[in-house]
Amino acid sequence: MSRTLETLAPILLVAVLLGLWEAACRLTGVPAYFLPAPSAVAAAMAQDWALLLGSAWKTLSTALLALAFASLTACSLALIISTNRLLEKAVQPLAVALQVTPVVAIAPQVVIWAGLAHPDRAIISLAVIVAFFPIFSGALTGLKSTDPDLERLFDLYGATPWQRLLRLRIPSATPFVLEGHKVAGGLAVIGAVVAEFVAGSGGSQGLAWRILESSNRLQTAKTFAAVIVLSLMGALLHAVLQASEQAILRRFRGR
């Protein structure tokens, strides 16, 4: 099969599905609040593009800020914990408990703690909580997954703990940390959107608010438009993180 055809196949599939959807809406005359036709969604996007882009930027910048903050705290905490086995044992159950708690379950309380006047703070905090764990567990696993023979070599040459950390453990952890960031990037967007939903006020003008607003008004085409922008944004972020991961790893391993 030719390469062009392979590239075209998913686009073709989407085009066919959209065509079927459009035809079904027109033929059955289903009401637009129940299922808008793709043309109506496209019209809503064309009409509101400035507003949608602004909201997308709001959500994306929240997610990126959360990712940066999560990266800093998760990496530092993993570094500290990796130096002490007892500390690691002590922290692990707590970390797991916090990790398996759905973010929606703690969101209302975080909104109250952040102050009802500051939904932004709550949204960032919740996105940080969600993005924290993949980076934290990636870094911790990475710091402990050094080649045992390399560890022996460092023993043999009398490396100090500091030399071992800088020259062996941190470089060994790099691929794991990068993978953690890739996963965390997607989760940060989800965390930001969930938090915007729970905060549920116009104080945050992110994409979740666009979705809430339009669905409350039964403007389903606008809801679809916002959801599409959201998923495109998530895909874009994932692609950027994946490409950076691969580029860094290529440089790191020399191929």
Binding site: D149, L150, L153, F154, G158, R167, L168, F252, R253, G254
Partner: peptide
């Protein structure tokens, strides 16, 4: 010691790998 596997640091070039014992000292 030379181990069964080359046991090199994959992120470092040959020169940096060989210089390791000297730099650790």
């Amino acid at each position: 010691v030379v181990f069964q596997a080359p046991t090199l640091m994959p992120w470092a070039d040959a020169r940096t790998n060989v210089a390791l014992p000297l730099e650790l000292a």
